[in-house]
């Protein structure tokens, strides 16, 4: 011990510190399996990808598929809806990032960055606030004032590119990783 009569650290001090460090590192290694077991199992990860055919979807219609336990919105946008989304300057958006898994994290939230083909808007149908499923807005049954979606849980409103415009949600609806495997076929995940 370091004290008045023996100011130098002793061999015993070194042993205390070395033992303490070894125990701490060992405990961290031992804890990891008990933490990691809560992450998605291989069975859950194995069901992470689906392929869907979009041919039957009409302009202006939204169809919901199930992907990774969440609803997946596929909306065939009308020319008017595309034009409305493109008329919005990115600088005026709540969340300026595209949130598109197919692009870089820093891509801006322009309508072009939210889609692969402008007609097809593919989104994870989970409100970025607290996980409710937003309701689609149609000309017959408008939801919110931006023509996209309204989340009834806490009042978040999305536009026709699925971007957050009003309410407590912090981010745009996520665009999942997907690719066209045919003219009207996409593979998600």
């Amino acid at each position: 011990m370091v004290n008045a009569t023996n100011p130098e650290p002793t061999r015993r001090d070194f042993l205390y510190i070395a033992t303490g460090a070894a125990v701490t590192v060992g405990a961290a290694f031992a804890a990891w399996p008990f933490i990691d077991q809560m992450n998605p199992s291989s069975a859950v990860l194995a069901m992470a990808s689906i392929e869907v055919d979009l041919a039957a979807i009409q302009p202006g219609q939204q169809v919901i598929f199930k992907w990774r336990g969440h609803p997946l919105f596929v909306r065939r946008r009308t020319a008017k809806e595309i034009a409305a989304a493109r008329a919005v300057p990115v600088s005026s958006l709540v969340d300026g990032l595209a949130r598109n898994a197919n692009l870089k994290d820093s891509a801006p939230a322009s309508d072009e960055n939210r889609v692969i083909k402008p007609e097809w808007l593919v989104l994870v149908g989970v409100c970025t606030h607290l996980g409710c499923i937003p309701t689609v807005s149609t000309p017959q049954s408008p939801q919110g004032s931006f023509g996209g979606w309204l989340c009834h849980c806490h009042g978040s409103e999305y536009d026709t590119a699925g971007r957050i415009r009003k309410g407590p949600a912090p981010q745009n609806l996520f665009v999942p990783p997907y690719a066209f495997t045919g003219p009207t076929k996409i593979k998600i995940g």
């Binding site: 992450n39 998605p40 859950v44």
Partner: peptide
Amino acid sequence: TTWLWGGFAVDDATLNR
């Protein structure tokens, strides 16, 4: 949240834990 759920949404794994 993925860790808490044990998946990509609240599901069987979540219910069990």
